[in-house]
Design a protein around this nucleic acid. Structure first.
Lengths: 339, 339
DNA sequence: ATGAAAGCGCTAACAA
DNA sequence: TTGTTAGCGCTTTCAT
């Protein structure tokens, strides 16, 4: 059982508000009383009740963190980083996973409101629920998405694609592949990749864009697409390319994958045909997760630490009402080269 | 801005305690008033202030979760699972990482106390800090460690080792390797592994126990040890073993690794000598993380979901003072076979 | 510089 | 069944 200020006051032979003043660093306190109070606090290990403080002060020093999935190495790094940043400025995080479910996300956000969180950092599942935060005027920073009504931190996917293109060009790549995350459609990574190729007078062949055959994000299906591509181009690209470039020791095929998991799917499929990374093909993944580290392939890293730093900083500026405009911060990714 | 009960009461033309009664499901409320109140609550989207409830009720519906590291796929799965279990019974988690630092852990636990958490689930960095929880009589469940003064959920590492031994025996393995996580010392996984071999009339050769050469947990050093072992036994074990068993299509070497990361180190080193998984050697990792899934090697899985279920259940029993004895629950791991 | 008193939003004992 | 009242632990006037 924890003490309260009244008990501390009695033990130190002062009034309860004096204890409050000591704890809050109010200067109008006799140094001697201050010492006495601090001694008692120290000896019994008193911790002021945060719930009472929240009630009285109308702020909780709590940040609601909502993500669409926890067991994704990318979000986990993000959560770790946010927890660290929050802790270092005296805030705590309440973590919620919405499991990619809009209804759960809605409940979670309502819960944040009930908990009196000072702000929310969210990787949103949908736009609808964000209105709840708007309605209650909760300072909010959105991560990964850009939304005109909210502050946001995001990454330039185009820049990531361009970075990959640059790397491949440096390596003398002539055959540029791209394997996307979703079904066919607008893909900023691909845009950046293509544009950088064009800017260098190179061409991207549309049939080298592999993607899910359907709307459903089934990874088995993508694996089949990859498998078929490799099989069909074994004798036309992969093997000849290596032979042509045998003086360099590596081929001129470059594969950019929308994320690290896809990258591993490619590596696995390629190995079935005895194609070896950095010999028969160059490869770059996205997100630079533990997978890229352990498989030792290059990957585009999102500056997670920078993202969380900016998120918290931006959130704090909103909480303290130092800014009221809507900021959309875009950060640049960087290429982690591994050979 | 959120409403409060007083405002709801005014809008519904009832007294404020009536609003409280409606919200808390008190039956002594005129159905008509109840309806009126619920309508107002619904229309303005009122959420009772949790801080006030915490202050009044002396419980927070908050669970403090402290781990030694977040960015570890194993803990990440655990956190996700705990968040899910807590949420499904109306609790929230406050997440803290202690970064393997005793001082940070101490501050985090004090913070839990200030936050009035109803209970703590902790992967402890040290025993000392646990005394804080004991002192304040915070219901606590320890995960992974067993401690006589606390309730705990842990995994039988011996059983994991035995499971691996059984699998290897089934596969006809004759050369049993073990690569431990730490420097040389007591290792329950190894104990279970050996004992199961002995129980089957088999022998474990001590020189087949690879480990860090020093106290420092430097993974580069372990990699060198692995590398040296493979090089030295290439012609005496790995190659001959495959030749002897070429009718079966795979050798009779079995490698058990203390965790999945070590497993990948072995696979990587082995591939330098063109040794292929499930051909030149059988391998089992520990923890069944995303690494094992993507590299497709077998791994001993800890029943993470079961762990979190038991943790929350046990914690709730402590919170409600239904139990006061100290329980040490040991769960059995299971082998996920991948070929 | 210090203490007495009010009130943050809620629940529960009590009175009506 | 309903409203009045006190109080959870804290901060902050307001007197002194």
């Amino acid at each position: 059982m924890n003490y309260n200020m009244k008990e501390i006051a009695k033990l130190a032979n002062v009034s309860q508000p004096t204890v409050s003043r000591v704890i809050n660093g109010n200067t109008n306190v006799n140094p001697e009383l201050r010492k006495r109070v601090l001694q008692v606090i120290e000896s019994v290990g008193f911790q002021p009740n945060r719930a009472a403080q929240t009630l009285k002060n109308q702020n909780s020093f709590l940040i609601g963190v909502s993500v669409t999935s926890i067991s994704n190495p990318y979000f986990m790094d993000l959560i770790e980083s946010i927890e660290y940043e929050a802790r270092s400025i005296g805030y705590n995080i309440i973590l919620h996973n919405c499991e990619n479910n809009i209804l759960i996300e809605q409940n979670n956000l309502k819960n944040f409101i009930a908990r009196q969180v000072d702000g929310v950092i969210i990787v949103p599942e949908s736009d609808e629920n964000l209105e709840i935060l708007d309605k209650y005027k909760i300072p909010t920073v959105i991560i990964t998405h850009v939304h005109s009504n909210f502050n946001s931190i995001s990454i330039s996917h185009e820049k990531g694609g361009a970075l990959a293109a640059d790397y491949f060009i440096r390596k003398g790549v002539q055959h540029f592949l791209y394997i996307g995350q979703g079904p066919y459609g607008k893909d900023l990574k691909l845009e950046g990749y293509k544009n950088e190729l064009y800017a260098n007078g190179l061409n991207f062949i549309e049939s080298n864009y592999l993607h899910h055959p359907t709307e459903t994000n089934n990874s088995i299906q993508l694996e089949k697409v990859i498998h078929t591509y490799i099989k069909d181009h074994l004798d036309t690209i992969f093997i000849p390319s290596l032979i042509e470039n045998k003086d360099k020791g590596h081929s001129n095929v470059g594969v950019l994958c929308g994320n690290d998991i896809i990258a591993i799917q490619f590596i696995t499929m390629a190995s079935k045909y005895h194609l070896i990374l950095n010999v028969h093909y160059h490869l770059i993944g996205f997100d630079d997760t533990i997978l890229a580290k352990s498989y030792r392939f290059s990957s585009i890293r999102h500056p997670i630490h920078e993202m969380s730093t900016h998120s918290i900083k931006l959130l704090m500026e909103l909480v303290s009402r130092r800014i009221t405009s809507k900021n959309a911060i875009t950060l640049n990714p960087l290429l982690i080269e591994r050979s």
